[in-house]
Design a protein around this nucleic acid. Structure first.
Length: 155
DNA sequence: GCCAACGTTGGC
DNA sequence: GCCAACGTTGGC
């Protein structure tokens, strides 16, 4: 399958891009929205590109690039009573929630802010701008190219 | 920190 | 299966 592109949102106070950089890899767990769940379970594949977006705290921006290193599999936190993501209705025989693993690739030289994205030609139809509440969003290849170019990277 | 928009739950 | 109540998200 051709490489696909996504935008993953995270509140930096909960999990920042710097945390991923330090840990190199992480489980993208705790997603409790069915539309996002369907993407995690069915569509997002190892090798796909991820734009890492910081929400809620300023500056709200895409701050770097990650890569999916493992496709959808059951999110273990749904069965963990001690987790804030515990779901009493989840059944191990038929898991409700899924996650993927992502790996740090590189940080942008220049964060691409929400404000900038709103004003940038070619990005008008990004989900981020239109249906902003979805925390896992598809990104079109041409949108990816624009944001990657804008963000740049340290050599 | 506020609150509008959105998604989910559950009583009927 | 409707929809009011409730909880959460996320830009401001």
């Amino acid at each position: 399958m051709a490489k696909q592109y996504w935008l993953f949102k995270s509140e930096p106070s909960a999990y920042a891009f710097a945390d991923l950089e330090r840990e190199t890899e992480c489980h993208w767990d705790g997603v409790r929205n069915y539309q996002a769940r369907n993407l995690l379970r069915d569509t997002i594949k190892s090798g796909d590109g991820v734009l890492f977006y910081h929400s809620r705290e300023k500056p709200m921006a895409v701050v770097g690039v990650a890569e999916v290193v493992r496709g959808g599999y059951p999110d273990h936190t749904q069965f963990d009573k001690n987790s804030r993501y515990y779901d009493p209705k989840a059944d191990p025989a038929n898991p409700r929630w899924y996650m993927v693993d992502v790996a740090f690739k590189y940080a942008f030289k220049n964060s691409v802010t929400l404000e900038a994205i709103k004003g940038m030609p070619g990005l008008e139809s990004m989900v981020l701008v239109n249906r902003s509440r979805l925390s896992i969003q598809p990104v079109q290849p041409k949108e990816w190219a624009i944001i990657i170019a804008e963000g740049g990277r340290y050599s």
